[in-house]
Design a protein around this nucleic acid. Structure first.
Lengths: 157, 157
DNA sequence: GTATGAAACTTTAAGCTTGAAGTTTACTGG
DNA sequence: CCAGTAAACTTCAAGCTTAAAGTTTCATAC
């Protein structure tokens, strides 16, 4: 077996510093997006996330599918979808042959509403990330993807 | 006046993609940190954040100071500090000359506990970011700092 | 002094989030 | 068939989070 020994190198400190910056930037952007969603659309980030996932999966997603895609708990999805249904943005269909499950889909109203929100969202992000040099965008995205993928792989084990 | 016209360029799409990756990586790391804090220390990220802020400000912070530093609402800080006080990790001192305010400080128990958590935390981060090449660390940190700073500046206006 | 307004908080209502426990339905081995 | 187990959810308790409203204290102007 391989034993990992704690060493507090410069590289280690740099990585911690990187994480703190990533976190700070993410929270700043997220707060701005939340505030904009609230002000302009009277909505929230979790609702936006659910609608985005359903838009990508045009044939619908089961509750468990939503919680897997969004990486949140089952119980969480229950509440968010509940409220989206109340607002008529989403429907829950019965799954033939499995009375436990239900398939969540966007309604026409939901699609129209989400189209507006997604367009605004893209503009917000574009403005917020304008300060990142074009040639840095792809390398940074790839580096962070490596971090996320490593953790995803770990979860699946 | 300058009018901003919406243009959906390749650069714009790349920036959106970058944001989605940043978000994904951040959530993955955050989830891991939350889970580790819960499992190993029966604690949470907000509690860790408050203790980290108080550790950096050794002479204490007022409630309003905490909410400014952490960029969360006043009411939020009230609850978290309340629970930290219950656990004896933090104390609230009276501010002489201002009966409205109180100064929050770490206790000896809090300092001892946080030292353990911070050391573990640094190790977790080091492991999770091991996949990022050393020479990329600083440039990425700087690029994201630009994003955060732009939003901070905007808030102060 | 005393009104008036600001500052520093706390409280509240509503929504988000999780892990754990509970319910109903489906599947599988004997 | 049917017992046991797994799957797909929902419910629950506790904590996090915010905006808005409320409270007490302080500062300033008159």
């Amino acid at each position: 077996m391989t034993k990992t020994i704690a060493v507090d190198t410069q590289a280690s400190k740099d990585r911690l510093r990187l994480w703190l910056r990533v976190l700070k930037a993410t929270r700043a952007v997220e707060n701005e997006v939340r505030e904009n969603l609230r002000r302009e659309f009277s909505s929230t980030l979790p609702r936006f996330d659910v609608m985005a996932a359903l838009t990508q999966h045009n044939d619908g997603l089961k509750m468990s599918g939503l919680s897997t895609v969004l990486k949140v708990s089952n119980g969480n999805v229950t509440g968010i979808v509940e409220r989206l249904v109340e607002d008529g943005l989403v429907i829950r269909e019965k799954v033939p042959g499995d009375r436990r499950a239900s398939l969540v889909k966007m309604t026409a109203k939901g699609r129209a509403e989400f189209a507006k929100q997604a367009a605004a969202h893209e503009q917000w992000i574009d403005t917020m990330f304008a300060g990142v040099a074009a040639e840095q965008v792809v390398p940074i995205a790839d580096a962070l993807d490596a971090v996320a993928r490593q953790l995803d792989d770990k979860d699946e084990r």
